[in-house]
Design a protein around this nucleic acid. Sequence first.
DNA 1: GGTTTACCAGAACGTTCGTTCTGTCCGGGC
DNA 2: GCCCGGACAGAACGAACGTTCTGGTAAACC
Lengths: 174, 174
Amino acid sequence: MLFERGIRDTPVDELLRRAGVSTATLYTHFGSKDALVAEALRVRLADWKAVWDQHVVAADNDLDRLLAVFDALASYRNDRRHPSRWCAFLAAATELADAADEISDVLAGDTALLADRLLHLSRPLAGQHAQDLADEVLVAYSGALAGFLRGSPRSPIGTGRRLAHAAAQAHGRD
Amino acid sequence: MLFERGIRDTPVDELLRRAGVSTATLYTHFGSKDALVAEALRVRLADWKAVWDQHVVAADNDLDRLLAVFDALASYRNDRRHPSRWCAFLAAATELADAADEISDVLAGDTALLADRLLHLSRPLAGQHAQDLADEVLVAYSGALAGFLRGSPRSPIGTGRRLAHAAAQAHGRD
DNA sequence: GGTTTACCAGAACGTTCGTTCTGTCCGGGC
DNA sequence: GCCCGGACAGAACGAACGTTCTGGTAAACC
């Protein structure tokens, strides 16, 4: 709800009704709407990390482990426990530009997770160019997410995966 | 200002002060804040298109014409007449999810412009796979923009360009 | 020269929304 | 049996902000 309709466009009252909880309870537990949003984002980040983990473990070669981020994204988005228009973290950072550090910290956390893991997964494929490959996959991944916001291309995840694949091949050759 | 601090976080009063214009004048000219924002977005889209045009014309081979979108993005962003945190269109669509059609129409216009031109520019390089290549470049482009929001990778445009280059090469080979 | 047009400054209005306050009720521990 | 922590519904508050209104000024035009 927060991440479908937008954080700013979802009043606290709706969250209360949806959760079947009273105003006072929410505010004693979280203190503010921003803190609640930050907590929701932290939960999403943990969930996302877990799903990604599974797909990396399930892959059986270096290339598939790197590309697993796209397969993980596909299954994360198919899970109706994680509805969102495109990316909860990028959207939150956009909507709440000047807002609480607590919130932009979660985007930073997501980005750091992606950067670190992609770098690690790129090493066996690209060696000393691992940083370049990791950057490229991160951009392909973010671009796929943005594709949902644009409504184009039709299959952003498949497109992002092909892009990352081509990048990996390009680095594998040299 | 609208696209640096965020549309929602920029009150009309600040725009008035900035523009040295009175409330009444703004409202007789535009009718509402949303309409003003929509107009600002339309102007940006026209500017962006013009800059992109120049870079396509200046390129002297098919590959560079396709990749010109990244060079255009770099010079568009360097021009201080077009400040923005990442992408005005994607940001506006995120901030004003349920808002006026007039606004989401501009994102649709940007996306259509990108999709059409990239497809056209992809044809000489990828022939029957032109649609795939165009999709890939669009994702690489959107990913580069998102990179500015993330603050990672450090040079999103260069990374996106490499990504698109690898995709073009991959399609050129088959 | 009077009228129209366009603009200005600033007050005022109405709505939305995050947050707090009031008063009530229930359930479990001594 | 009493008490207290925690939850509830709902009213109330206060700030922010988009929009409209009031009244006044100055140039453009017939």
